[in-house]
Design a binder for these strands. Structure first.
Length: 765
DNA sequence: CTAGCCTTGACC
DNA sequence: GGTCAAGGCTAG
């Protein structure tokens, strides 16, 4: 079994193991997020009409310059799309017929060839495994590549409104041999990996195609690209071994990938029996709110009432969505969802009992945004570094902080106790509180504080610092950007002289990122002043949320200045960000932690503020499990010897998801995604250094199944296949934040960017 | 009930 | 007319 194959299998195991690790939370999470999404969003929509606005504002600054560049791209994309589709379809046309013939007898085969293909699969690692049970994939079914049996099982379950129960702890391992043992866990896993309820037709109409066609097509195209990279890697690896090329008789050249002999006289199908699913399309697109595409009634109900009373009272009782509907009217979703964290904040009556707090204090962020003399009023005095506060545009910040409900300096219509005003004032406060006195000075943007838009302020600051002059930052902050890089925040000190053999696109990404990091330094200083005290009864959740909120801000700031992204229409930018923000955030954190010596943070999460957070101090078991899962991700990436260009590419791949609902420039986005995918594949081929350290030196049983690449072609796949784990962590984090927010009647994150992202994701992801 | 195989039909 | 992802059928 190839590493690639192992990895995918392990991904499945990983899902299962993480389920074991956090089975309760996982399951509960799963229900609670759906549960919380809709009502919370509804609530917020009712209460906070402005929610998208601040994000809009953040992005609108570049609107003017981005409005005119889509048409050509769209045309180009269409061409690309067609060509991609052509190659695929051409290939499929010949292959499918043969496949149908062979699979009838041999079962659904990824490579459509009988036993000899096992060796081929092992060799290339391109075997597709059902994300539910690990059996061989027979095609796209209900949204993703699954095996025939899981397809049928899913169909029967949904059509017949099955009501399963788990006799164990809802943690049953689902694999090919045990998938019959627990229908409850099997169906749960079907949903987890992303099988779409709405793809099961209520009217049982046969034939035809569904609305997922384009998604499937893109998936295939991306999978083909992955395979192409594998072949390129394989060829290069072989050439390294046998420079004369004689050693690659059985290795397909990149040009052969749509139909080549494997050397055994067998036709190797590049697609759809391609490498593992592209993470973005199915495995990785799992656990999303089905609302995106949900049309059938049961989907609708699933979305709105996943947390039905029966599930709360009978944890082993799984109801079909239809049945959930029946019971949903009596569901107290809010209360039941909190059962996930029965002891969360229990001791903090000041927080949980909102009635004791004056209105503006219901939003604890006020404490952090509004305290005079510092942006973070709650921070321990020792951490209240003076440069920040002293560098605040005096008068601006002090005025801001002198009141809890207005931002006079903004001159904004938002300045009031309204949610919009809170957002603006908070972000502006954050913005201005950054040590950027030189920025405001150089740009003459005293007007900054007078502008009505947070974004315009941000834009002013962006313009103040020449983005391509890294040293500018030093002048402004008195702190070398290298200081931060060497302190391993996000961007390492990357020697562009090492850019030999780096794909041009990645070089551009690096340049873009490094330029941004220089402007980012001042914000990082701000963030580094935050101190989290996990020993607090509430886990210092307010500070954590404040930190995350600022990271959201940074992420938006980064994205809107990033290569390619700024060429996208603003409304699409918003959609992409809302869909990807949590994963980008997680990736950033993982990257940061990967830059630290492993020994220094074995059981610690390296927070964005540089603080080491010992997860053993986390009181809540579910949260602790989430932290452990996160650390597992960190460990996996660390073993991959994840490199800076790879990290950047991954962020871009997450961000540029053409399947985000409502995005209108999907072709352009897809083109970027493809470019980055190709570049990443090329880079991992040329710059792999993980093989020497890839021997699993696992320390825990759960990790034993995790596999790391032994060669470059597999590193590429392993990196991509880590995305599902990133998403799982991100989803759980979102659920946690939503639960906490709801625990505070939605006022904890009300009016801040984090809350906006959190509650706005429903319509986009 | 499972899962492999067959039929259907919108889409290309 | 081919594709392929739906639903249907049925032996085990």
């Amino acid at each position: 079994m190839s590493k690639y194959e192992i990895h995918q299998t392990n991904h499945l195991r990983s899902n299962s193991s993480t389920k074991n690790d956090s089975s309760e939370s996982n399951n509960e999470f799963e229900e609670s997020i759906d549960d919380s999404n809709t009502p919370t969003t509804n609530d917020n929509n009712n209460i906070v009409m402005k929610t998208p606005q601040s994000l809009d504002d953040l992005l609108d600054a570049d609107d003017n310059q981005n409005e005119e560049n889509t048409e050509d791209n769209e045309n180009d994309d269409d061409d690309d799309d067609d060509s991609t589709r052509l190659s695929i379809d051409d290939h499929n046309t010949s292959e499918t017929t043969r496949r149908k013939k062979s699979t009838r007898k041999n079962g659904p085969g990824v490579l459509d060839v009988p036993s000899p293909d096992v060796g081929l699969d092992v060799k290339f690692g391109f075997n597709d495994l059902c994300p539910v049970c690990g059996d061989k994939v027979s095609g796209f079914h209900y949204g993703l590549l699954t095996c025939e049996s899981c397809k049928g099982f899913f169909k029967r379950t949904v059509q017949n409104k099955k009501n399963y129960q788990c006799i164990d702890k809802q943690q049953c391992q689902i694999d090919k041999t045990q998938r019959k043992r627990c229908a409850f866990c099997r169906f749960k896993k079907c949903l987890q990996v992303g099988m779409k309820l709405e793809a099961v037709r209520e009217n049982r109409v046969r034939g035809g195609r569904n609305k997922f066609g384009p998604l499937y097509r893109r998936s295939r195209a991306l999978r083909q690209q992955i395979m192409r990279q594998h072949f390129v890697s394989m060829v290069k690896a072989q050439q390294n071994i046998m420079p004369n090329g004689n050693g690659i008789d059985n290795v397909h050249t990149p040009l052969d990938i749509t139909g080549v002999s494997n050397g055994n006289g067998m036709q190797v199908k590049s697609e759809p029996e391609q490498p593992n699913l592209h993470p973005f399309q199915h495995m990785y697109s799992s656990l999303q709110n089905p609302t995106n595409v949900g049309h059938s009634s049961h989907v609708h109900h699933q979305n709105h009432h996943p947390h039905h009373p029966s599930s709360a009272h009978h944890p082993h009782h799984y109801q079909s969505s239809h049945q959930q509907q029946k019971s949903s009217s009596t569901s107290a979703s809010s209360s039941t969802s909190f059962n996930v964290y029965p002891d969360f904040f229990n001791t903090n009556t000041n927080i949980t009992n909102n009635s004791r707090m004056p209105p503006f204090q219901l939003n604890p962020f006020n404490n952090y945004y509004k305290t005079p003399s510092t942006t973070y009023g709650h921070s321990p005095p020792s951490l209240l570094l003076q440069p920040t506060s002293s560098s605040l545009p005096s008068g601006v910040s002090s005025t801001n902080t002198s009141t809890n409900n207005s931002n006079p300096t903004s001159g904004s219509s938002n300045s009031s106790s309204s949610p919009v005003g809170q957002i603006s004032s908070k972000l502006l406060d954050y913005q201005i509180s950054s040590p950027t006195t030189t920025v405001t000075g150089t740009n003459g943007n005293n007007s900054t504080s007078n502008t009505s838009s947070i974004l315009s302020t941000l834009t002013m600051q962006q313009q103040a610092i020449a983005p391509n002059d890294p040293m500018n930052t030093d002048n402004h902050t008195g702190t070398s950007s290298i200081y931060f890089y060497n302190n391993q925040y996000l961007a390492p000190s990357y020697d562009m002289n090492d850019s030999n053999n780096i794909p041009e696109i990645l070089t551009k990404l690096i340049e873009s990122d490094q330029a941004y990091r220089c402007t980012e330094v001042r914000y990082i200083e701000d963030i580094q002043q935050i101190h989290v005290d996990l020993a607090r009864d509430d886990g210092d959740i307010l500070v954590v949320c404040s930190l995350l909120d600022k990271l959201c801000f940074l992420m938006v700031d980064w994205a809107r200045q990033s290569l390619y992204f700024k060429d996208i229409q603003i409304d699409n930018q918003i959609k992409l960000l809302k869909a990807a923000w949590i994963e980008i955030l997680i990736i950033d954190l993982i990257w940061k932690q990967c830059q630290q010596p492993k020994e220094t943070c074995l059981n610690c999460i390296v927070s964005a503020n540089g603080q080491l957070l010992n997860i053993n101090l986390i009181q809540n078991p579910a949260v602790k499990k989430l932290a452990e899962r996160y650390l597992q991700c960190v460990n996996d990436f660390r073993q991959l010897q994840w490199q800076y260009p790879e990290y950047l590419a991954l962020k871009y791949l997450v961000l540029f998801d053409p399947d985000v609902q409502g995005v209108t420039e999907s072709s352009l986005i897809e083109e970027v995604q493809e470019k980055i995918t190709n570049a990443l594949g090329e880079y991992t081929t040329d710059h792999n250094n993980s093989s020497s350290t890839s021997n699993p030196t696992k320390t825990s049983p759960n990790q034993q199944q995790q596999q790391m690449p032994t060669n470059e072609q597999e590193k590429f796949a392993c990196i991509l296949l880590k995305l599902p784990d990133v998403r799982l962590v991100g989803n759980d984090l979102k659920k946690l934040l939503q639960l906490i927010d709801r625990k505070h009647d939605g006022k904890l994150l009300d009016g801040c960017l984090l809350g906006e992202m959190l509650n706005g994701l429903q319509s986009n992801s």
